[in-house]
């Protein structure tokens, strides 16, 4: 009998827990390495005028007087019991804030990924159909452009142009959750999703292009051509299908990156996602907010990775068999 400790699922679980613990330690220490704390962030320069006793009592109030190790484990213990902490700035628990922000971030990430795939994959197929031809040059150029234009620039430019000349700026009004006003929500998500998706299209297109080029040279593609299979079917059913694994991997990585990395675009378009929650937490030195939110992001990332692995199994019967 195989030892249960070697079971791949168990190993995966242990790896996951260790990763998340590492993230927790990292974010905890990094935060404390930034000068200032919640007292200085709240009081500003006035904090310098406080007497020693006042400072002491405030530190005790914010829980900053305890040793770091104790602070760490008391936070971690709270997290494990479902208490992610409290934000004095927002007057809400981090749990409540996350329950609002996580769906927004997920929605944005999913929409952006769809946009990225819709641009990246067809462009890659166009490029790969005539390597080094005119189409390929065009595809690569778009890819390069998407990679080189920073999305804050693109976002600001798009927002300015559309709101000034088309007098259309759905993001000027308060943010509407999808469950409240789906139509307004989708309009508000449109530009951020387009911009993030455009940035995503570049790495997806590059990965897809090289995967497609590789698959195209394989024997079974020649077999299919030898049967007289039509070109579109050849490209989708035989070539693209066999190139999916690297595309899924790259998309998964980019999706994970969007979970916390969409800060700038969320900020420009006033989208209340996790990125903004972390940013506000950092500005306010609300340690628990930052730590817990980052941990939520990391956990989501892990879940996305697991789903990616499941997707491999759906795509490839050889993985299922292994």
């Amino acid at each position: 009998m195989r030892s249960i400790a070697r079971h791949p699922l168990l190993r995966r679980l242990v790896e996951t827990v260790l990763t998340l613990f590492g993230v927790a330690v990292l974010v905890f220490t990094t935060l404390r390495a930034i000068p200032g704390d919640e007292i200085t962030a709240t009081l500003g320069t006035e904090a310098a005028g406080l007497s020693a006793e006042q400072q002491e009592s405030l530190r005790a109030y914010y829980g900053l007087d305890k040793p770091l190790v104790l602070q760490f484990f008391s936070w971690l213990g709270n997290v494990l019991t479902g208490n992610l902490g409290f934000s004095r700035r927002a007057g809400a628990t981090v749990g409540e804030m996350t329950a609002n922000a996580l769906p927004v971030t997920m929605e944005l990430a999913v929409l952006a990924t769809i946009v990225g795939l819709l641009i990246g994959v067809p462009l890659a197929m166009l490029s790969a159909s005539r390597p080094n031809g005119v189409r390929d040059g065009f595809g690569q150029l778009v890819g390069l452009a998407a990679l080189s234009v920073p999305n804050f620039l693109l976002g600001a430019a798009l927002l300015t142009v559309i709101s000034r000349y088309a007098h259309y700026n759905p993001n000027a009004q308060g943010f509407a959750h999808f469950t409240q006003d789906p139509l307004l929500n989708l309009q508000q998500m449109l530009f951020p999703a387009l911009i993030l998706g455009f940035g995503l299209a570049a790495p997806i297109m590059r990965t897809a292009r090289s995967a497609l080029l590789e698959v195209q040279t394989q024997d079974f593609v020649r077999t299919a051509r030898g049967k007289g299979v039509a070109p579109w079917r050849l490209r989708v059913r035989h070539v693209l299908h066999n190139a999916l694994n690297p595309i899924v991997t790259m998309t998964g990585i980019q999706f994970g990156y969007l979970l916390g990395g969409a800060v700038v675009v969320e900020q420009i378009f006033s989208v209340p996602g996790l990125g903004r929650q972390v940013l506000a937490g950092i500005q306010q030195k609300e340690y628990a907010v930052v730590q817990s939110t980052v941990l939520v992001i990391a956990t989501t990332f892990v879940v996305v990775n697991l789903l990616t692995d499941l997707l491999y199994r759906v795509i490839d019967p050889r993985v299922r068999a292994a």
Partner: peptide, 16 residues
């Protein structure tokens, strides 16, 4: 006209 190829291990689509 139809052809049978040299290497059956690589001549079939693995995902189909």
């Amino acid at each position: 006209a139809a052809m049978i190829y040299q290497d059956p291990m690589t001549s079939l689509n693995p995902l189909m």
